[in-house]
Nucleic acid binder design. Structure first.
Lengths: 356, 356
DNA sequence: CAGTACTGTGGGAGCGCTCCCAGACGTGAT
DNA sequence: ATCACGTCTGGGAGCGCTCCCACAGTACTG
């Protein structure tokens, strides 16, 4: 008779299940949550009642009483929303989603474009609506990681802000990936290998440049600063950098680009300059994105284990949330100390195609 | 002294705000929810207390007491997770996210791959954790739309299952887009325009084929069934269909592909057959995805107003949830009757590039 | 056979809100 | 002055869970 609009017959509550099973509320709760302190007989009884009634625990009530949300947020800062178009995010989301499914956790997607939206998200955190946060592609100056640390909310970054990252993270081996790209080029007889880097304020750009340098050094080639041009991960930046390189070192015979998108820009300039790929100049990218496969010629690129990274992020986050304790019973939050396992660097793989 | 781990000092509650403002709980609640039945003086008083204490309402408590979740789910069925890589999803998500931000609604992202995950999602719906659902790229045989209708959960589809779609939806003008692509080709003197279609069990494929046929008819060209080949929205499908077409009608001078991905496949076959693009054969795609810009030559394609579609989906859903009542106070759910406005078809735009 | 230690169980006391019913205080008409 | 009818306000009664305390029962000990 309630005016509000109680839905058809009303969904069964814990209490009703308890009544039907002839046990107390607490016992049903224990069964639902997989507590071991229930006799086998009672457990079966309760499970039967649950099945009969089609009982599904109300999450809101659970969240209120249990101080948890069964939800984690995947946060994508403004600067990165365009990257969304890349298979990268698709892979991360799939990995995360798969990793969370086992824990019956939901994924909240939060795009933060404006400072108003950042505030809104901070309120959301304050309102206890998430148990943890996954942060994608943080820049060095992003205030979010520190905010999360202050609020003591379990967090995992995708990538890191610096070599001394304090927040748990999952990253790919950018240095190693760049290195393998260069070993490949040098192994195929290229002598004058240039590189187009990412923006210097991003750690990932540093790593890839570092890998380039190491490989050049290891091969005994001279380190030539004129072979390094700065890009910004955009196509236009790739074009600009390529023009610079061609002006400075017209004799170059290979270019390693720190992203596929920049490689696409570089290719245009190379073609405009009449260089054939790969005959005159070999080209290698990074990310193994869709454009790598569709470029003409198809682009050799460094692939990251993206979906696996997403899975790993989910795993690391769950470990923090459950306080390192095994899967089992989700107790009240008990923040785990930062462990060594909370820094994960996954290997990359070179995908060879026609451009090199 | 609570063992659980009450966070630092404890966040302020409604009651504390009430005490500080010297009013009752009900009054604070009214102010928070923007009820008009509060005197100006009291409202200011309460707002001051809220600001002083940094009060943020607890969402879980709100959800429990108020029978709402302030959350909507964006559901992506298995078959589509690969499309995730496309700018399409990026755009939809951005539009939806922007559209929801105004309503202080959160976005839950749900990937459904297995039947186990579908069940899990159904439970989630039963557990009252979402106020509405956005469904992306539904197939004709997807059981989800009907399930949602039965549960009386507000829903908006992206695309529709058939011409007589009963669930509110937002779609783009696929027929018109295909038509404009063909008018463009025919206008440039192409006489033998072939098409590669999507899978016949998808309504969107029908629409695009329909647009092709209408334009051919309107131009007074003969309708030649041999110029129609069936694809499946994949690159390999595009290749196969292109081979068929070349075998059946070697004299064709243009191909309209129902997706960019299939156009990429078609291009490979055309090239393998020694046809130059656009000199011998003009090529047009659909979606205006990343590969369209990076293809060689760059692909003419039909662009959909993706982000706007996302926004519209959010708007339609919110209208259902708030029962058509203006923004204002969020009352308990009152499902709105299916209105004419709940069917939205947005216009497309032809983006001309070098391939035609 | 009392004493100690478990294991299993019931149910009270909240979690922080919203809803809604009374009641306090106006204001105007009679 | 009296009554009716507004507008505003306080606070009780939940929402459906989890947590935890107390207690019954059983199984060991000395």
């Amino acid at each position: 008779m309630a005016p509000g609009g109680r839905r058809g017959g009303g969904r069964p509550t814990l209490e009703e299940v308890a009544a039907r099973a002839g046990v107390g509320r607490g016992t049903v709760s224990r069964v639902i949550n997989g507590s071991p302190r229930v006799s086998e007989r009672t457990r079966t009884l309760v499970q039967q009642a649950v099945a009969d009634l089609g009982y599904v625990p109300d999450r809101a009530a659970r969240a209120l009483a249990g101080h948890r949300a069964d939800t984690v947020a995947l946060v994508v800062p403004e600067a990165e929303t365009r990257l969304f178009a890349e298979p990268y995010f698709s892979g991360i989301i799939r990995g995360v989603s798969a990793g969370l499914a086992d824990h019956d956790m939901q994924l909240l997607l939060t795009l933060i474009r404006t400072s108003k939206e950042r505030r809104r998200f901070a309120d959301y955190l304050a309102a206890h609506r998430v148990d943890g946060v996954l942060l994608v592609s943080v820049h060095g100056d992003d205030p979010l990681p520190d905010l999360l640390e202050r609020m003591a909310i379990p967090t995992v970054l995708n990538g890191r802000r610096s070599a001394g990252e304090t927040v748990p993270f999952v990253d790919s081996d950018n240095t190693g990936g760049a290195q393998s790209a260069l070993e490949h080029l040098i192994g195929r007889g290229r002598r004058q290998v240039a590189t187009i880097t990412g923006p210097p304020d991003m750690y990932v750009a540093h790593c890839r440049l570092d890998g380039y340098r190491r490989a050049v050094r290891a091969a005994g080639h001279p380190e030539d600063a004129a072979l390094v041009a700065q890009g910004d991960f955009t196509e236009e930046g790739g074009r600009r950098a390529m023009r610079e390189l061609l002006a400075r070192r017209p004799e170059l015979d290979a270019v390693f680009c720190a992203s596929d998108v920049m490689a696409a820009g570089a290719r245009q300039e190379l073609r405009a300059a009449g260089r054939r790929i790969p005959d005159d100049v070999a080209l290698v990218g990074f990310d193994d994105s869709a454009i790598a496969r569709h470029m003409d010629p198809a682009l050799t690129s460094v692939r990251q284990p993206i979906e696996e990274m997403g899975r790993a992020m989910a795993r690391l986050l769950m470990e923090q949330i459950t306080g390192g304790a095994g899967s089992g019973v989700p107790g009240p939050r008990a923040p785990a100390p930062p462990s060594a396992a909370a820094r994960l660097v996954l290997p990359t793989e070179l995908v060879r195609r026609a451009s090199s």
